[in-house]
Amino acid sequence: MTESTPPTVRRIAINTGGGDAPGLNAVIRAATLAALREGWEVLGIRRGYMGLLEPEVDGEPGVMQLTANAVRGITHLGGTILGTTTRGNPFGLEVRQPDGTWGKVDRSDEIVECFRKREIDALIAIGGDGSLSIAHALYNKGLPVIGVPKTIDNDLSATDVTFGFQTAVEVATDAIGRLHSTAEAHQRVMVVQLMGRHTGWIALESGISGGADVILIPEIPYHVDRIAEKVRERDVQGRRFSIVVVAEGAQPADGVASYADASGRYGGIADRVAEQITEVTGKETRTLVLGHIQRGGEPIAYDRSLALRFGAAAVRCIREGSLGTMVALQGNRIRAVPLGDAVHDIKRVPADSELVMTARQLGISFGD
């Protein structure tokens, strides 16, 4: 639901939650400057919502004043000046029990009360599907919220693109490209593991752009023998090396679960695939797990521009009273979409998409 009558706004807050992504600081800067031009006061909540529950940590206040000086020169910076956390869900915060064990407690009502006490009229919540689901739940408790989509996985269905994605693809493409010469020199198979628990957008786009021979994504279950066929095919053609790109959540066709540890962190699939390739083909293999390098560093120009547009649009939504929404890029325009719809489904790679068809026409194998 959105409000039809623009609210009286004096003070807003901004927070960043979940994994970091290139462009977060650009959103913060745009939203802050746009809000200041409206005559509003702007507060930054550190570490997601934890800054409200922990007023001070190591001498650092949990809430900071965002002024024009505070956001000067941060558009190009990676990370977030507000900090972030992946363990800050106020609906289920981990706490140590009296018996020494860990449990979860719902402190969401405290968050809403903190906003009321500070007389914050709206929150700009910058995050991915998890963070925005939390923001939507807080909106249902009465907290005025505008969401800004952030995820390098590009898996939010309501927006064509999320900021941070193109930078991650650029980083991954560069890494894949650099592996060609060393793989060819040693006649090895190089297996590159990229982020993508549930979707394969990064692996697909960077794999195509970087010249991969095999791309494994969660949406298309793979067979090891099909991967081996591609490796042998290249050997026959005199191309005695291969580049295999695998998303961390890719799954074999036998239905075995993705390679996640007890904490839910994904990893190890590159090693598993490399071992299997060696067993079947006898080829020497090496692995590279790109990991958090995909999240780090400066955002490319596209992500800076999109992040700035999102930040400014979020302020327009507050000014117009369009609360409980998320700003989204649809075509060449920024639109406000209901927050509940935005986090309802994740955007997966269609197996018959134009990108997949292009890859197949280029001779890239998906192991299927």
Rank of each mutant, 00 (worst) to 15 (best):
G92E: 15
R197K: 12
V169Q: 04
Q294R: 05
A313C: 11
R47Y: 13
H292N: 01
W102P: 00
V95Q: 13
S181Q: 13
A359R: 11
Y302F: 14
G130T: 04
P218V: 06
R239Q: 14
G249W: 14
T358K: 13
A185P: 00
L43Q: 08
I300H: 03
W201D: 01
T32P: 08
R10M: 08
E219S: 05
M357L: 12
Q361V: 03
R272E: 10
I176T: 08
G59M: 08
L355G: 13
G164D: 06
A313L: 08
F366W: 02
M357A: 14
A247Q: 06
A125N: 12
D254G: 11
G18T: 02
R226G: 02
I220S: 02
H223L: 11
R197P: 03
R29F: 00
R72T: 06
T84N: 04
Q97T: 14
R304V: 03
A122W: 10
G331Q: 13
S305G: 04
E113C: 02
A26N: 05
D20P: 00
A172G: 14
L156W: 10
P55M: 10
E229I: 00
A313H: 09
G23P: 01
E56C: 04
P90F: 00
Y222D: 03
L123R: 05
A31K: 08
Y302W: 13
D235E: 15
A35T: 02
G130C: 03
G340P: 05
Q193R: 14
T16W: 01
R46M: 07
L362G: 08
L123F: 07
P218L: 09
T173H: 05
M50Q: 14
R118M: 15
G19E: 06
Q97S: 05
R360E: 09
P221C: 04
K150T: 06
E219L: 04
S242W: 03
G18H: 06
D58M: 12
N140Y: 00
H223Q: 15
L216W: 12
I74S: 01
S258L: 05
V315D: 09
E320Q: 07
G83N: 04
I277K: 13
D109Y: 04
W201H: 15
F91K: 09
R295A: 08
I111H: 05
